[in-house]
Design a binder for these strands. Structure first.
Lengths: 242, 242
DNA sequence: GACTTTTAAATGTCTGACAAATGAAAATTG
DNA sequence: CAATTTTCATTTGTCAGACATTTAAAAGTC
């Protein structure tokens, strides 16, 4: 654990990198305790504040957790799926909002990924997943539902579809796609969409999964994708006119 | 921008969350300048060190960048694809290594995602993408290649395949899958694999993309997936014996 | 007007201090 | 002796003040 003394700026970034490398490479293992802040300061020959700034950086990436008290300190954190989901979603949301990603591009990526799950979901869906999807589809049919609630339910439906594949890695990879892009799409299309059409497609997807029919599931997802795209086109066309 | 004064611990985390929310919600926009550390300290009624720790957290997530000097300060950072790729890869790598993900699960997710790109790649691949894939396949056939170099080339080949889909969002989403899982797979299977078989399949995939044949591309990817899985099974069986 | 110097503002770093939490050891008590 | 309470050392969390360094704009100089 050493840093380059010749580049005086951003010491805390260098120290964070040094520790991060040790974690990624496996030199530091899960639940290993790092030296105390005072010891790290001595090792790296910097002040305690600089060490603290480095540790905060690592904490922000969920690489370490800290605990106060006599036997406390900084410990290598076991990155859990929920933590990774959260980071994934934040990053994906910002990436989309800051880079002017076209609706077409986002929609294409979103459905390409979801359709990748379809065969596995059709094979492995449990009664639980089906129940969630049907419940959400039913909720979406309620007339009094706000647009926000409809969107949230939409996300929940698609999350269940993805989770039905029974592959946590896939669920993690798709968290950003579903949770970041679905709201984006809803925001654009909500003025023009027919909830009825969407609910019908959701029902058809649930039916296809129930029957473990992968082809039908894929076909209905493709239909939903093209419907969404068509909606967006009409919204953009209407905006052009105005 | 206010924080709860009743929870005295983790002030820097609360401040980071407050600013992060402002960025995600759009209250703070790209290239907006945050107040100086001294001003933030006054606003939140904390010391400058605490503000600094909060800013380091945000910097670790690439949400802000800082600049020294008279007109310097902290600015809302435009999250670029390369930055997002990097975070994605780090997170995916740690998630896999820390959660004892089975080879089968990782492999399944990896190929399900990559096969989602196949139809788009077959349609849109450019001469450039094809050239990269062929060059990497050729490199992989060199007898003197180390296992590390073979793995790196393998990653480059699959990256080109994904990028050929011409969808940056998809490339971003798949960065973790390819860059984190491919090395994991290579590490497990390198003792048993036949490079010849893999190179032949890579060549076949390039041919199929060249011909814009989506079905053939998908079929060859499926072959590669099942070959990889079979390899892993044989490695695990051999380990069981020993 | 072009160049140099000064200056002010901002982040980066350091030092020293105290508060608060926490578990372990020591002391007390029944 | 066992159970409880108290003390204590360790560690993170926070604060205050200082100085170094960088940077661009303002002031001064030729």
């Amino acid at each position: 654990m050493k840093i380059d003394p010749d580049s005086p700026a951003d010491l805390s970034a260098q120290i964070a990198k040094s520790i991060r490398d040790a974690i990624v490479s496996g030199t530091l293992r899960v639940d290993d305790r790092l030296p105390s802040e005072a010891e790290l300061a001595e090792q790296f020959e910097v002040s305690r504040s600089t060490v603290r700034e480095a540790l905060k950086r690592l904490g922000a990436q969920s690489l370490i957790r800290t605990q106060r008290g006599a036997t406390g300190g900084a410990f290598v954190n076991k990155l859990t799926y929920p933590e990774a989901y959260g980071q994934q979603i934040t990053t994906a949301t910002l990436l989309l909002s800051m880079n002017a990603v076209s609706f077409t591009t986002a929609c294409e990526a979103r459905y390409a990924l979801e359709r990748a799950c379809a065969p596995l979901s059709a094979q492995r869906r449990t009664a639980d997943h089906l129940a969630t999807m049907r419940a959400e589809a039913h909720r979406q049919a309620q007339p009094g539902l706000t647009d926000e609630a409809f969107c949230a339910s939409d996300v929940a439906f698609h999350r269940a579809l993805v989770d039905a594949a029974g592959n946590p890695v896939l669920s993690y990879q798709l968290a950003g796609a579903v949770e970041a892009m679905q709201p984006l799409m809803n925001m654009i299309t909500f003025t023009a969409r027919s909830r009825e059409t969407i609910v019908a497609l959701h029902g058809a997807i649930a039916d296809a999964l129930d029957a473990q029919n992968a082809e039908e599931t894929d076909a209905k997802l493709a239909e939903l994708a093209s419907y969404t795209n068509a909606l967006a086109q009409s919204v953009f066309a209407a905006r052009q006119k105005a």
